[in-house]
Each structure stands twice: as C-alpha cells, then as structure tokens.
Amino acid sequence: MVKKLYKLGLVVSLGMFLFVLFSDIHNLDRTSKNYLSEHYISEGVQETGAINLVTSVLYDYRAFDTLGEATVLLTAATILAFLVPVTKADMLGTTFTIIVYQATKYLIPFIAVLGVYVIMFGHLSPGGGFVGGVVMALIPILLSLTYGIDFSEYKLTPNTKKVVEDIGAIGFILLGLLAVLTGNNFLANGQAGFPLGNAGELISAGLIPYLNVMIGIKVGAGLAIIFNSLMKEQ
C-alpha cells in the first residue's frame, strides 16, 4: 500500500513538472519567430520542387535522418530474424470459410495499386515511402494470415525479401552518392543540379520520387520479415 502511494506520488510530481514544461513550450512557440520554418515554407517549393513540405523536409533537407531511420528498421528486422529459430511455424489454429479466401484473393490487386499510388505520389499528396511501404507489406501479411505461413513463404521466400530489402537500402545510398559524383554534398538534390521540373507534376522534384521508391520497397520488405518472424515464433 505504501509502495503504491509512493509510485502514485512519483507520477503526480512528474505530471506537475511536465505541466510547467509544456506550458513553457506553448508560450515559446507563440512569441518567438521560427526562421527555419519560415524559410522552408517560403522557399521550399522553389528549392526542392515538391509541393508536400513534409516530404521535402524528410527527403531533401534532412534526408540523412531518413537514412538513419531506415537503418533502425533494418536493425529491427535483423534482430527478429536472429531471435527466431528456423522451425516450422504453428499457425493461429483457425480455418476460415471460403468467403475469406476468395475475398483475400480479390483484395490483393487493389492493395497493390493503392500502395504503388501512395509511394509514387509521395511528393504531391500525403503519404510517401513509409506509408506506401507498409501498405505493400500488407500483401504477404494477408497471405500468411489467411492461407498459412507455408503458402506465404512458398510464394515469397525469406531470402527474396532479404534481397529486396538490401536493394532498397543500397539503392538509397547509391542515389545519395550520385550527388557526390557531381561535386556536391551527400544526398543533395536541388543544389546538385538535378532537373526539378514543374512543381505539381508526377515526374518532378529531382531525386525525391526515386528516394521514395527505394524507401518504400525497403520498408515493405522489412516489415514483412518482422511480421513473419513474429508469427513463426514457436
């Protein structure tokens, strides 16, 4: 009882501290002027060619952070592949009716089209490589949930998924090195002289759509590996 009161008091004091801290953040944001954000908002479309400013921050101004984020996903997939022994999986132990199987079969092309759309229009609309990659990863996940993990791994073997993930990671770095060849910084886009095109068209914004595609296939393959590893755990 005393221990529980002690923990409760600890949490309440933390809450009071956070209350003061968050109110300070609130006041700070209203009174000061954010020069970096102002620069991104006023110059971002001309400098990067992408009209979605979140994508332009993620893949142009701070693309190095995105590389680190992709590395975290790669590390998680690797850890899970090492944690799980290579055994036969035991399934969820349920069999579905024919409606579920047929519906899954007809749903998969639509999911593929949606994923490709979200990846390709990442610099024009909300979405981008990460979200589209997760939508693409839903295809092997649905296969292994309904038809069983043996069928899913017969269609897309784990080695194939590993190779696809590595292609994504290496392709991202090679696209970054392309800017170094022209004598600029790593992952430079507009400064390196890539054609930016007209803002708002599909083929525009220099390197950003290609970086989106690389991140998309990398995230999709990595999350499929993670989910299948979790399901194969004995």
Binding site: T55, V118, V134
Partner: peptide, 12 residues
C-alpha cells in the same frame, strides 16, 4: 501525413 502514418502503422 502524420495521420496516414498513424492510421497505417500504429492502428493497423
């Protein structure tokens, strides 16, 4: 953008 990522990753 944050809403789409949250819907797909956290809630899905």
């Amino acid at each position: 953008s944050v809403a789409m990522a949250e819907a797909v990753i956290t809630a899905g």
